[in-house]
Nucleic acid binder design. Structure first.
Length: 227
DNA sequence: CACGGGATCGTCT
DNA sequence: GACGATCCCGTGT
């Protein structure tokens, strides 16, 4: 089994693996959930293609007043409807016609909150992930960035609405017992939401400072105010 | 290393 | 018809 570069222990103790349940996802503070997701294990098992990775980077999105959130103003469309479901399902959408971005829906029903999973450090099923990406598992390029993370884990928009807590779900998240200290969490503004005006300045991106598996930060370019 | 542009298509106006 | 919660590659320094 792989050494864990961040926490310095091995992930071969199944008794410590605890699948996150409704009570975790239905926390109504999406920023807190986002921070708590750091260090957890994202696992997918599509037709026996088992792989996992430690979550190293996330962003919180929170309707109704977050202009960067697809459900801003509680706007309901066929696509965003998933975000209004009770916490514990996947919200996956296509970005730039190419990338499948994976989010975890949180909070109660009719609360359109979600956490975008932006990066993982691969732990198990490295060969599968390398095949999907055509990139060595030694390189952050494998899974640092929301589009490539989804590709490495095999997640596509076909899975939007999928429960993360049902016993037979092929996607879930586990707590494997490690503690992430507050001082090891970095924060910044969210990436790629320059259009969101003042919300583009909210520090709702969180990452593990020690990790190499974190996407490069791009500061927001704010549009000059006309007057 | 910084920057710029093209790819590519579902979603919403 | 416009525009992305991105990525990759090419150019120039």
């Amino acid at each position: 089994m792989n050494d864990n570069a961040i926490f310095g222990w091995r992930s071969e103790y199944p008794s410590m693996h605890k699948k996150l349940d409704h009570s975790f996802y239905q926390n109504t503070d999406v920023v807190e959930v986002a921070r708590h997701l750091l260090g957890k294990y994202l696992v997918t098992d599509f037709g026996g293609q088992y792989c996992s990775g430690v979550i190293t980077e996330v962003e919180a999105y929170r309707a109704p007043n977050d202009k960067a959130c697809h459900a801003y103003n509680n706007r309901r469309t066929k696509r965003t409807e998933i975000m209004f479901w009770p916490g514990g399902v996947a919200y996956v959408y296509l970005c730039y016609g190419i990338h499948h971005l994976f989010n975890v829906v949180t909070g109660d029903a009719d609360m359109a909150h979600a956490v975008l999973i932006r990066a993982v450090e691969a732990q198990e099923g490295l060969d599968i992930m390398e095949d999907r990406r055509g990139v060595s598992a030694q390189k952050p390029q494998l899974s640092a960035g929301p589009g490539v993370m989804s590709k490495a884990m095999g997640i596509t928009t076909a899975w939007t609405g999928q429960s993360l807590v049902e016993a037979d779900s092929p996607i879930w998240i586990e707590d494997r017992g490690q503690v992430v200290k507050e001082e090891s969490i970095g924060e910044s503004t969210r990436i790629g939401v320059d259009y969101a005006e003042e919300c583009a300045l909210w520090p709702w991106r969180f990452f593990l400072k020690e990790s190499k598996w974190v996407s490069r930060f791009k500061p927001p370019k704010l549009k000059p105010k006309m007057h």
